[in-house]
Write a protein that binds this DNA or RNA. Structure first.
Lengths: 259, 259
DNA sequence: CGTTATATGATTGAGGTCAATCATATCTTT
DNA sequence: AAAGATATGATTGACCTCAATCATATAACG
């Protein structure tokens, strides 16, 4: 009765995608669709659940709500502790009330998650174009959550484009927390034009600009420049000041750096 | 053993708020928290569910539109096959390309899910204010997904408010698929002012208006009227025409009804 | 105050899910 | 080619949820 391993793997991949597509899949349905017994269906469920983004429930399995945005799960990846430290520092800059903007990206998603741990928020208005950040902040105490509309970009799980830029005109932010893919002597940069353009639009509406980048972005130059150093209120990073200077990044003021 | 009526009512109100707060409440937990037997807990659940916005599931009860359980909510209860049938009919009205709007609500979420089963879409622009629908449609083949920004309402997992209404001004839809909580002789209605207001704004930008309601909404009147029958292109429902007329709902044209 | 209505808890049985066990076929490894 | 490993399906019993039923205490009502 044994079946080749690669067929098992393929069947489980199919099971995962079936669950993702249907949202919920009863065990009986799995048996029918995959042509296996209940026992095997359950065993497959255990295996698929262990790989993440699927939750077993009584009677079947459920796709996690965020599974559509799984590509941007900030809890995975090597830079996780670094991101958590950065998020900690960034959240410390957020007042109890006011209006802030949260960008897309895994680092900022970590900021959003850290923000939910704050128990002292009175009435903080948070706007974001990141659906991942939004799903993290949904229902957070003391937070009035707004989503800046726009075209959905699958890769970032974020909303961008001309409609997003136009929607920003309505806003005025006390602070914005942005991510970048590179920082060098010239400032912060990103690899996609649409992202850079959107971020520049955010800068126009914002008093205090915090860029959050982990040390791996050090000295890296990506095509689309977003902001020069002077424009930043602070750079939030886990890199040491010495590392920054050796990479040719000038530190005009101690205030600009929260490492 | 009988308990005063006002105490029963108060206990059920508390139960409702407990469910709303926790999103999901197992029966055992209800017994513990309210100090009643399982039998009473179930009876209370039946009563609370009848009053709306709560859905019983195997093992407990679920607050409607809870984002964390969006998928589970959609498939839960005996209304699932009805919703699936409605979704099937609604999706049949959607062309291969064009621009459509999808509302919030579990019925429309089912429409979104059914839409992902369509394999013939060439370039369909879908705008929505529902994050649940967005997460379903994220990455769907042939779909350009847009999210209409606004204030996030936790209960609906949707975006509403003045910013959402204003964002609609940019749009022109070939068709819109909307949900309602009641339909009677006067037309379709909803129980929340913000929802009704938003839906009215959608109507202004839309050529063909499809309201999707299951038969349980029949003859039910909720406070905020959204649209009279004349304004609809079609009502998509699983109720029989005879049922509609006996509930005092006029059928001006066969074309208006896809049951 | 007496009668009626009903909210409650206990019990029962039906229906369903699930983990554990076991024999078996067959893939995998040596 | 032989031995070992393992994926599978059938079976079993435990466990849980739930609706229905019943007796009872007590609120509600005339």
């Amino acid at each position: 009765m044994r079946v080749p391993q690669h067929l098992v793997d393929r069947r489980r991949e199919e099971l995962r995608s079936l669950i993702r597509r249907d949202g919920f899949l009863p065990v009986a349905e799995i048996c029918r669709r995959l042509g296996v017994s209940e026992a095997t269906a359950r065993r497959d469920l255990v295996a698929v659940e262990a790989n993440g983004h699927i939750t077993r429930t009584y009677g079947g399995a459920l796709a996690d709500y965020n599974s559509a945005f799984a590509s941007l799960d900030e809890r995975s990846g090597r830079a996780r502790p670094a991101k958590a430290r950065i998020a900690e520092k960034a959240v410390a800059q957020i007042p109890r009330s006011g209006t802030i903007f949260l960008d897309a990206g895994t680092t900022i998603q970590a900021v959003a998650r850290a923000l939910t741990h704050r128990r002292d928020l009175t009435h903080l208005v948070v706007a974001t174009n990141s659906l991942a950040a939004a799903s993290v902040l949904a229902g957070a105490a003391g937070v009035e959550l707004h989503v800046v509309g726009g075209m959905f970009l699958n890769r970032q799980a974020a909303l961008m484009g001309t409609r997003a830029v136009r929607a920003l005109e309505d806003w005025s932010f006390d602070a914005a927390f942005l991510s970048g893919e590179g920082m060098d002597d010239a400032g912060v940069s990103n690899s996609h034009e649409s992202i850079a353009e959107f971020q520049r639009a955010v800068l126009h509406q914002t008093d205090n600009i915090y860029f959050c980048l982990d040390a791996s972005k050090l000295g890296r130059s990506t095509p689309h420049r977003v902001a020069p150093w002077k424009q930043l209120t602070a750079l939030v990073t886990d890199a040491l000041p010495k590392q920054l200077t050796t990479h040719g990044i000038e530190l005009s003021s101690r205030k600009h750096l929260r490492a």
